[in-house]
Design a protein around this nucleic acid. Structure first.
Length: 451
RNA sequence: GGAGGAGUGGCCGAGCGGUUUAAGGCGGCGGACUUGAAAUCCGUUGUGGGGGAAACCCUACCGGGGGUUCGAAUCCCUCCUCCUCCGCCA
């Protein structure tokens, strides 16, 4: 959620940002050409109405307080005068209470209407993020590594599913039977490879100063809300647990980000770097048919997530964002996987992200790049709702007001996607797969197959 | 799962219907004393929201939510969390 003051001080900035991102906020706007201005005008009306009601309700509460004080003062009068003096005050107090209740209720409804709409307004967008919403609008920043020339090697590369099935590394049929489509079992060496990837990522994270965590795989709905995930509605990406306010997490970003909700941190703790290992559950609603083969898009996978809390200054959080991207690159360079880095276009950033980089590995089986990791700077957008603040250093000996932290997340490794990239890039002509050198000590073998 | 007990400011802790603008202490900050420090003494101290150019004013907040009352930290209901004991369990 953005600071509501931005709506009052710089509505044009919000309007332009809605246009850049293609976020309509309301789905019943009449104007096709200027829906963004219309949306901002409606938000401003909501805010105005709330503030008027709040002001009126505050006035009534002040009257109530004055009335209580007056009633209390009656005790100082001579005994025989008290009852007569108290009676009109109590009657007045009763009337005030009735009006105050009514007005409070209206105020609360107005606040909910405003906040509900305001929370759908996405974060501001980095000036350098490319504008647009099509795939080709993303900016490729650079590439790393050399893609193998399979023609020169004399064979046609298989995709990871063919390889995995031939090597008996994955069982989708059993997954479908026991849970449903897009669930799977890892089998044989894939189990160890999966764990080696986790171990590798955790060690790199630790080396860079991240405090390691295993995290809960469920979280409360308000934590999801705070991080900008929408646990409700038809297009939700998360599973909800029946008869509870819990959801299966789609990423440890949720549990790592929620850890410090409602806290005011000492500035010495920042930047605070945490890493979390968790399972990730995604409904993939609306994505049927896309990338449907194999491990690329599944309902459950395992991930090591990097998370950073920094002071609320853009120069600092942007530097941290570059650092997270560097760590992601280091991880995939270590695995020897060719990749490219993408600066995500405005229309494709999630609501909370101010800027987002994706790493896309080359996937020979698809003959295309495929997203393997992603890192976002969410600035103070998530912190505001989660109430994660810090106390800045005193200025001229004066204690400073708490400020919102900036929050950033990045994938260290999502094992399913990493397995896709490894199987496809390290396949051999005989159908076997060589294990990336850096994982060998963690796996205990250097090749899978041929079988 | 059962039975008790407890949640109060940055921390500890009193208060259990209107002298509380939340006592007292610790910590923090400022000052006095001191060559300096310690000790001592004095003052000060939270968060959100609304209004205001500002000084400042108003309002809310004693685990969350709801209720009773002219008035709630205090009484009632409900949920959450923690502690003690019992049972069960990997």
């Amino acid at each position: 959620m953005l600071d509501i003051k931005l709506l009052r001080d710089d509505p044009e900035r919000i309007t332009q940002n809605l246009r850049d991102r293609g976020v309509r906020v309301f789905d019943d706007l009449s104007s096709e050409s200027d829906w963004a201005s219309e949306a901002v005008a409606r938000l401003a009306e909501f805010d105005q109405r709330y503030r008027e009601l709040l002001s009126a309700a505050d006035d009534l509460r002040r009257e109530q307080n004055e009335n209580s004080a007056a009633t209390k003062a009656v005790g100082k009068l001579p005994k025989d005068q008290q009852a007569a003096a108290r009676k009109p005050l109590i009657d007045a107090g009763r009337a005030l209470r009735e009006r105050e209740r009514e007005l409070s209720e209206q105020t609360e409804l107005a606040r909910e209407a405003r906040d509900e709409a305001w929370s759908r307004v996405p974060n501001l967008t980095h000036p350098d993020s490319p504008r647009g919403h099509r795939d080709e609008d993303h900016a490729e920043l650079h590439q790393w590594g050399t893609r193998r020339d399979f023609a020169a090697e004399g064979f046609t590369p298989k995709d990871h599913l063919e390889l995995a099935e031939a090597l008996d590394l994955v069982d989708f049929a059993a997954g479908a039977k026991v849970v449903g489509q897009k669930f799977y079992y890892l089998v044989n060496e894939a189990v160890l490879l999966d764990m080696a990837l986790q171990r590798y990522a955790l060690e790199v994270a630790r080396k860079h100063g991240f405090k390691l965590h295993t995290t809960p795989d469920l979280a409360r709905v308000d934590i999801l809300d705070g991080l900008g995930f929408n646990p409700r509605g038809e297009s939700t990406q998360v599973y909800s647990v029946a008869d509870s306010d819990l959801c299966l997490v789609g990423t440890a970003e949720i549990t790592l980000g929620g850890m410090l909700a409602d806290e005011i941190l000492d500035v010495e703790r920042l930047p605070l770097l945490v890493a979390g290992l968790s399972h990730c559950f995604r409904t993939e609603a609306g994505s049927h048919g896309q990338e449907s083969r194999g491990l690329y898009r599944v309902h459950q996978f395992t991930k090591v997530e990097l998370f950073a809390f920094t002071v609320g200054e853009l120069e600092i959080s942007e530097a941290m964002h570059e650092r997270l991207r560097d760590i992601e690159e280091e991880l995939f360079q270590g695995l020897g996987l060719p990749y490219r880095v993408i600066d995500i276009a405005s229309g494709d950033l999630g609501g909370p992200a101010y800027r987002k980089y994706d790493l896309e590995a080359w996937m020979p089986g698809r003959g295309d790049w495929g997203e393997i990791t992603s890192t976002s700077n969410c600035t103070d957008y998530q912190a505001r709702r989660l109430k994660i603040r810090y106390r800045p250093e005193p200025v001229d000996g004066k204690k400073q007001k708490p400020r919102m932290v900036h929050m950033l997340n990045g994938t260290a490794v999502a094992t399913s996607r990493a397995l896709v990239a490894i199987l496809e890039n390290y396949q051999q002509a005989d159908g076997s797969v060589v294990v990336p050198e850096i994982l060998r000590p963690l796996c205990g073998f250097d090749r899978i197959g041929p079988r």
